[in-house]
């Protein structure tokens, strides 16, 4: 049975899809068969971030409606044999995600995969609730600013009440916090909430802190999950995140303001 992980946030633009791609790639690189499923019907992005947009033939909705088999719709990643992408439909309506349909697809995926990563759309509407309904674990992606923190908090409330685990009275979803777009400089200037502030409000296990980084945008544009860019701070931070998810204990990095010495200024790192 696969572990179903939902990447969610409530707020848009915080890095859910980037995180989904990174986590799925990280798990697959460590040898786990991993599928990453785009729940953002109508606004699909995961295929772009994963760099497989030209290979999409069938999508999630086709599978739900029985118009294609799961194997036809799954796209194998070219960089990692254990990673598969199930893209969202760009043309259908979110309502096409039925609880039974989603349950069936996730169930089928669970038979052959170790991890199923669900990339949730923003908001708390149908698509988002479907993405989290069957989850075992949830990674709540939050930016260090008040509206994102509140939306995450709201999302945590929904996770606690509207998931299958909550409804059947099973062990609740394991919730993790991932702080993204963290800029130590702006925190130091008081322009951003600090890690401690966010943790105090959300009181969650911290899975990682991803620094604000140009490499994220560059990777997205290139269709390469940023975790593959092991040179970049964001790539390394995502690597740490995957390790922590799998139970390793690592210190959190990239939390301090980097002193710009003469040397680094000169060489521009």
């Amino acid at each position: 049975m696969a572990r179903i992980i939902v990447i969610t946030s409530g707020k848009g633009g915080v890095g859910k899809t980037t995180t989904s791609a990174a986590l799925a790639m990280g798990l697959a690189q460590r040898g786990s068969r991993t599928a990453v499923v785009d729940f953002d019907v109508g606004l699909r992005n995961l295929d772009l971030i994963m760099g497989c947009e030209r290979r999409v033939v069938y999508d999630f909705i086709n599978v739900i409606n029985g118009e294609a088999s799961l194997n036809q719709a799954l796209i194998r990643d070219r960089r990692c044999d254990d990673l598969f992408v199930l893209p969202a439909s760009q043309t259908r309506d979110k309502e096409a995600l039925t609880k039974e349909g989603v349950g069936k697809v996730l169930d089928d995926l669970s038979q052959t995969f170790d991890y199923v990563v669900c990339d949730s759309p923003a908001g708390i509407e149908h698509g988002a609730t479907m993405a989290m309904y069957y989850a075992d674990d949830a990674v709540v992606v939050t930016n260090p600013e008040v509206s994102s923190v509140r939306d995450s908090d709201r999302m945590l409330g929904i996770l606690a009440s509207k998931s299958r685990r909550a409804e059947t009275g099973n062990e609740p979803i394991r919730e993790y916090l991932l702080l993204t777009r963290y800029s130590p400089e702006r925190v130091a200037n008081g322009e951003m909430l600090g890690l401690e502030d966010v943790q105090e409000i959300l009181s969650l296990d911290l899975l990682g802190v991803i620094p604000e980084s140009m490499s994220v945008l560059n990777a997205s544009n290139a269709g390469i999950p940023v975790i593959l860019d092991s040179e970049s701070d964001a790539g390394q931070a995502y690597g740490d995140m995957v390790a922590r998810y799998l139970g390793e204990e690592l210190p959190h990095r990239f939390l301090e303001v980097r002193k710009k010495g003469l040397f680094s200024r000169f060489f521009k790192e």
């Binding site: 509140r150 908090d153 709201r154 945590l156 409330g157 929904i158 606690a160 409000i201 959300l202 009181s203």
Partner: peptide, 27 residues
């Protein structure tokens, strides 16, 4: 014994309510 999140409401009828954990804004 868990945090009460934004958007959640808890009501105890005819009795006391104790929460061990933070009550988020919006709860």
């Amino acid at each position: 014994t868990h945090p009460i999140r934004s958007g959640q409401r808890v009501y105890t009828r005819e009795g006391d309510l104790s929460v061990v954990g933070p009550i988020s804004s919006g709860a």
